[in-house]
Amino acid sequence: MSILELRKLWGNQPLIAAAVGVLIQDETGRVLLQRRGDDGLWGEPGGALEPGEDFLTGARRELLEETGLVCPDLALMPLPDGLQSGPELFHRYPNGHEIYIVGMRAQGTLPASALLDAQPDDSGETLELRWFALDDLPPLSNNANRQSLSVLRARVGLPPLPLEPTPPPPPVGNYLMELRKLVGARPLFAPGANVLVTDAQNRLLLLRHGGTGKWTVPGGSLEPSESFEDCARRELLEETGLTAETLEPLDMFCGPEYRFMYLHGDVVDNVSVLYRAEGVTGRLTLQDGEVLEVGWFEVDELPEDEELSGTLIQDNLKVWKRGQDI
Rank of each mutant, 00 (worst) to 15 (best):
I16Q: 05
M252I: 12
G279Q: 13
T28D: 14
L116V: 08
G86F: 04
G21W: 11
R30Y: 10
L274P: 02
P51S: 07
H97L: 12
K318S: 09
V22C: 12
N174W: 15
L204R: 02
H91K: 06
A114M: 08
L89D: 00
Q147S: 02
E304W: 01
I313G: 05
G86Y: 00
G210N: 06
P72N: 06
L134V: 03
S309T: 10
T28K: 13
G103T: 01
F260C: 00
T243G: 08
T67L: 08
G21S: 14
I3T: 12
T212Q: 08
Y262M: 11
W131G: 09
E278K: 15
E128D: 14
N270P: 00
S225H: 11
R283P: 00
E5G: 12
L32A: 05
E293F: 05
P256V: 06
P167R: 03
P191A: 10
V280L: 12
L149W: 04
A133T: 10
G52W: 06
T240V: 07
F297H: 14
E257D: 12
D300N: 14
H264C: 07
G173V: 05
Y262T: 11
G86L: 05
A17M: 11
A48K: 06
W10V: 07
R155G: 11
P111G: 13
N12Q: 14
I326L: 14
L4D: 15
L152K: 02
L49C: 01
Y275L: 13
P256K: 08
P72Y: 10
M1K: 00
R276K: 14
Y258E: 06
T240G: 06
L76K: 03
E307L: 15
T109E: 06
K214T: 12
E257W: 01
V20N: 04
P169L: 07
L4Q: 15
L76N: 01
Q324A: 10
L79N: 03
L9K: 13
S123H: 09
L33H: 04
L9Y: 07
L308V: 01
R130K: 15
A48C: 12
D73E: 09
W10A: 07
L247C: 09
R146M: 09
P111T: 10
V299C: 12
L134A: 06
S309A: 15
N143R: 02
E290P: 00
L63W: 11
V294M: 05
M252R: 09
V197A: 07
L250W: 04
P159F: 07
G241L: 03
